[in-house]
Computed example of a mutant assay.
Amino acid sequence: MKNYDAYIFDFDYTLADATEPVVGSFLYALEKMNLQKSSRQDIINTIGIPIGESYTILTGDDSEEGIELFKKYQKEKSDEITVPNTVFIGDAKEVLQILKNRGKKIGIVSSRWGQRINDIFENLNSRELIDFIIGTEHVENYKPNPEGLFKMIDM
């Protein structure tokens, strides 16, 4: 097995599960916009995709006005429910702790807002496990574009 100095992880469904707050905030935004509710599974299928693209996938609307309104309402609810309702997946915390105990650097590159990831780790009393976070506010081009990974490598 190779011995690396640093490990880079995705966030959603790799380290953490934010399914309930994502579904809840999307349903809230759709309801506020008087749009037909999407199914839970359809919303789950958009996790990891930038919110504007998710909105278009779910509604068929690609208007800037619709996207911005959806983002506003989704964030409104997400600000309330995401941090306290996101949990680690399986043994993710233990794996991160083992890597830190071995002196490894740990980074996260995500299509999620980086400050929200920071807040989630704070809430889980685990912020010390992560050295660097690259979120949507740190890049112009979202994954799968490698910009976030290149920024992480340069840190």
Rank of each mutant, 00 (worst) to 15 (best):
Tyr7Met: 12
Leu35Asp: 00
Asn45Arg: 10
Arg127Gly: 05
Phe26Leu: 03
Gly66Asp: 08
Leu124Glu: 02
Thr56Gln: 10
Gln74Asp: 04
Leu149Met: 07
Ser78Asn: 10
Ser25Asp: 02
Phe9Ser: 09
Tyr73Gln: 02
Val109Cys: 11
Thr14Asp: 06
Ile8Asn: 06
Ser54Asp: 02
Ile98Arg: 15
Val109Glu: 00
Pro21Trp: 03
Phe70Ile: 03
Asn45Tyr: 06
Thr46Ile: 06
Tyr73Ile: 03
Asp12Pro: 10
Val139Trp: 12
Gln115Pro: 00
Ile67Val: 14
Phe26His: 10
Ile44Pro: 01
Leu124Trp: 06
Gly114Asn: 04
Glu76Ile: 03
Thr46Val: 04
Glu137Gly: 14
Gln41Tyr: 01
Arg116His: 07
Ile117Ser: 01
Thr136Lys: 08
Ser63Leu: 06
Ser110Cys: 07
Ser38Gln: 11
Ile117Thr: 04
Lys2Leu: 12
Thr59Asp: 05
Gly52His: 01
Tyr73Met: 04
Arg112Glu: 04
Asp17Ser: 13
Asn101Trp: 01
Leu149Asn: 00
Asn45Ala: 12
Gln74Leu: 05
Leu27Cys: 08
Asp12Lys: 14
Lys104Ile: 05
Lys37Ala: 12
Asn118Trp: 12
Ile43Gln: 06
Val95Trp: 09
Met33Glu: 09
Pro144Trp: 13
Phe9Cys: 12
Pro50Phe: 05
Gly60Trp: 06
Arg112Thr: 07
Ile47Leu: 04
Ala16Ser: 15
Asn85Trp: 03
Asp42Arg: 07
Leu69Trp: 00
Lys32Gln: 14
Ile117Lys: 07
